[in-house]
């Protein structure tokens, strides 16, 4: 309810010229912003295509374990470090409260990164480049990635996932 109630018959009151201008500007802006979303998906260089599949969390867990066993080259803290060949299917598993394994990738090589969670919703956030993807239990989110610079990239969780959410960190090393 507004402070000043409209008088009966307000529907027939002509809209003021200035209000028409503002409505037109707002409408044009809305249309532009809506068009930019699909347009930017095509012309933007960092937009992932939505490739995702249904997968049981226990199956994703198993696939990640197999991936680790196949390409493990060492350990870092409690985590396995894996170095898969270029073009391989690589796996990153989110769970309370860790991202594993540590991925060692080669610069300018392309990989198919499978991202998922085996328990609750997690948010994979890669720093310092600020790339963000959802890790949803029951879904295999496939990202075709090509690291273009070397360095160590930290992964944090940006979806609150429980008491130790703030400690949930992982790593991608690009050489």
């Amino acid at each position: 309810m507004s402070v000043q109630s409209l008088q009966p018959g307000w529907w027939k009151t002509p809209v003021h010229k200035e209000e028409r201008i503002w409505i037109t500007v707002a409408l044009i802006w809305c249309i532009l912003m809506t068009l930019i979303m699909p347009l930017w998906h095509v012309v933007g260089e960092h937009n992932p295509s939505a490739e995702y599949y249904r997968i049981a969390p226990e199956d994703f867990d198993k696939l990640t374990d197999e991936f680790i066993d196949k390409y493990k080259v060492g350990v870092e803290g409690d985590f396995a470090v894996v170095e898969p060949p270029a073009g391989a299917d690589i796996f990153l598993r989110g769970s309370q409260w860790q991202w594993d394994p540590v991925l060692k990738l080669k610069v300018n090589e392309t990989y198919r990164l499978h991202l998922s969670s085996i328990d609750v919703l997690h948010g994979m956030s890669i720093y310092p480049i600020n790339l963000n993807f959802e890790a949803v239990p029951g879904y295999d989110y496939v990202l075709t990635i090509t690291p273009t610079s070397t360095g160590t990239f930290n992964i944090i969780c940006n979806e609150f996932c429980g008491i130790s959410h703030h400690n949930m960190m992982g790593k991608i090393i690009v050489q």
């Binding site: 995702y52 599949y53 249904r54 997968i55 049981a56 199956d59 696939l63 299917d89 499978h114 295999d140």
Partner: peptide
């Protein structure tokens, strides 16, 4: 409409 993972 989401397909099952071909890896499984």
């Amino acid at each position: 409409s989401t397909p099952l993972s071909p890896l499984v």
